[in-house]
């Protein structure tokens, strides 16, 4: 495992920890899109079904369990926790996320590495992950006051994607895999979605003002 891959996994892990910390410490999920969290839960379950069939490393297995359980815990808090659920911005989190699920599924049926149940699930999870942040970005744009932790959550998620691209470039030159166009294209789309956010995050940091995305 190269350093880029490891840094990617760590920033991904940090993003989840930041979000759990925000929800736990403030007992509030304001500014957090439940739809994005539900999409991530679907992504992780679809992709990590190999948890019991393909062992790669203890590191991989532990991370898979962490990502599935943490996303489930966040969704559970936002739906069931007596205090947290009341802070959910239901009226602003209106993105039609079912459309993303359906579109990703159709794409996975057409573009996959093999027409098997597992490969279709894997491709589906790659496509869905690429667009799962959209409800969160729309919600950020609608909320006038983005709190620091929510901003950092999205920043870490974006960093995770950027590090994974560097990881693929590194692997391309050291191992030479050229046929992996599904994660490459989906990964580039996914990272591009953060470009706008990175720009405004940088501006708010540079000018030392609160993050606000233009409508």
């Amino acid at each position: 495992m190269n350093a880029f891959r490891f840094l990617g996994d760590m920033t991904h892990l940090f993003s989840v920890l930041v979000l759990l910390l925000k929800i736990y410490a403030t007992k509030s999920c304001s500014g957090v899109s439940r739809k994005t969290q539900e999409l991530y839960m679907v992504v992780f379950v679809a992709r990590y079904m190999d948890l019991f069939t393909d062992y790669i490393s203890l590191y991989n297995s532990v991370m898979k369990v962490v990502f599935i359980t943490s996303s489930a815990a966040i969704v559970w808090c936002m739906r069931r926790h007596p205090q947290v659920r009341r802070t959910y911005d239901r009226d602003q989190d209106t993105f039609r996320h079912v459309v993303l699920v359906a579109a990703s599924f159709v794409l996975a049926l057409i573009f996959n590495e093999r027409f098997t149940f597992r490969e279709i699930c894997w491709a589906f999870s790659i496509y869905l992950e690429a667009v799962a942040i959209l409800p969160q970005l729309v919600l950020l744009q609608r909320s006038r006051n983005v709190d620091n932790l929510t901003g950092q959550y999205v920043l870490f998620l974006g960093a995770y994607r950027a590090f994974y691209i560097l990881n693929w470039i590194y692997r391309y030159f050291t191992e030479g895999h050229t046929s992996r166009w599904i994660p490459w294209i989906a990964g580039l789309v996914q990272t591009a979605l953060y470009a706008d956010f990175f720009y405004y995050y940088f501006l708010s940091w540079k000018n030392n003002v609160k993050l606000e995305l233009p409508a």
Partner: peptide, 10 residues
């Protein structure tokens, strides 16, 4: 194995 290069990622 080299035929499964990316699925060792998360």
């Amino acid at each position: 194995s080299s035929s499964e290069p990316v699925k060792d990622e998360l």
